[in-house]
Design a protein around this nucleic acid. Sequence first.
DNA 1: TCTCAAGTGTAACGTAGCCGACATTTTGTT
DNA 2: AACAAAATGTCGGCTACGTTACACTTGAGA
Lengths: 225, 225
Amino acid sequence: MYEELKYWYLRDHKLFRTLSFSQIRQLCIITGFKKASKGEIIYFSSSDLPRIFLLKKGNIKIVAVDEDGNETIKDIIQKGDLFGELTLEADHKTNEYAKVLSDDVVICSFLMSDFEDLLLRNPTLALSYTKFVGLKMKRIKNSYANLISKDAKTRLYQFLKDWAEQEGVKNGNSVTIENYLTQNDIAQIICTSRQTATQLLNEMEANNLLMYKRKEILIADINKL
Amino acid sequence: MYEELKYWYLRDHKLFRTLSFSQIRQLCIITGFKKASKGEIIYFSSSDLPRIFLLKKGNIKIVAVDEDGNETIKDIIQKGDLFGELTLEADHKTNEYAKVLSDDVVICSFLMSDFEDLLLRNPTLALSYTKFVGLKMKRIKNSYANLISKDAKTRLYQFLKDWAEQEGVKNGNSVTIENYLTQNDIAQIICTSRQTATQLLNEMEANNLLMYKRKEILIADINKL
DNA sequence: TCTCAAGTGTAACGTAGCCGACATTTTGTT
DNA sequence: AACAAAATGTCGGCTACGTTACACTTGAGA
């Protein structure tokens, strides 16, 4: 891959806007790239050095497996998102992997230690990064708060609203979302059983609130959710 | 309050160990202090400039009130913890207050903007702070993960284990915890009703797993939880 | 010492939503 | 076109837990 392309891959992330060309080059030198396609599973091999990843294209989900073998969706990563050990603290206990949801993805990565060096030499970047992590924390807190105190229906509504806001294409009050999730995925995200999710989605469809299709979701009126 | 005391108040927090005397002095100049006693409610007045707080003594709980007037315990802050807008991002939407749980508390605070300046001039501190926030995020994630996927009993067990680990006084396998929470508080933390919490605690007492008293909790064998 | 509010104990009842057990539809693969 | 695998649809029983309701206990303040 051309150095220049690598440069732009980082450059257009808002976090790195403040960096000079040479600083990004330094990151680029140690950058790894990976392409993968739908269904593929990517392990953050713990044997490898800890890395921070940047999803350039597509969507992936982070799945955690607990001691009983239960799979939980930890996070849905979208184009442009950073993921991995954002806390800058390696953690070998958790057993996590990423699964590709969209047709194909491009992931680039850099070593945590190199990133740390960069932060040390760049206080402004360090500050932005801290705020960035903080923002992520706030989002997590909010979504969990929803999960806990509301019932399944409210959680689904909230999830759809959030999703529509983040990725939906508006057309007046109606919104179209590209659907790369299965009903099972959605169920896991809002922490309910697949059956309940199916039921609720059908109920919404019966009430003309939306149209659920495998490839897209059409919300008739986002304000009615 | 003597300048020197202020200095030590910050100095003995692990986050500030790397700072020089003069750097801490700079923080100290803008530091506010507050003492409060049991039951008192402290508002993070949003009219005021955004601050970061450091709890020097005692315990407090952070309570959020939603639009329906429901109160949720957001966090339990213990001696030595930082709290407030750790994300360095002011947020006026949420309606939160702190309630003092222990007999008396000492809180000191500094302005977020001053702290930011300090971070900019201190890359090492910025990095530690980022890791600190990251750690907090990880803890939150874990506790929420527990809340969601496990039943009330497991949640209570986990909560007691965590609490014992953080604050308990070990004596062989038995642990004594100073109990500054009511059963209602505990119920709110583990997200269940007061009645269910009471029932579970009594059940545990019947099984000789612990002794619940208003002032302390005695866990017979921490490994059996 | 008395009083009252806060904290704790206990029971009956209703229900959201999990789970198992299917049938049906859609998609990708040969 | 044919098949298997994945995704979706539907139902009924079961249960953990919230809710309502009330009695008892404790401790702080008058």
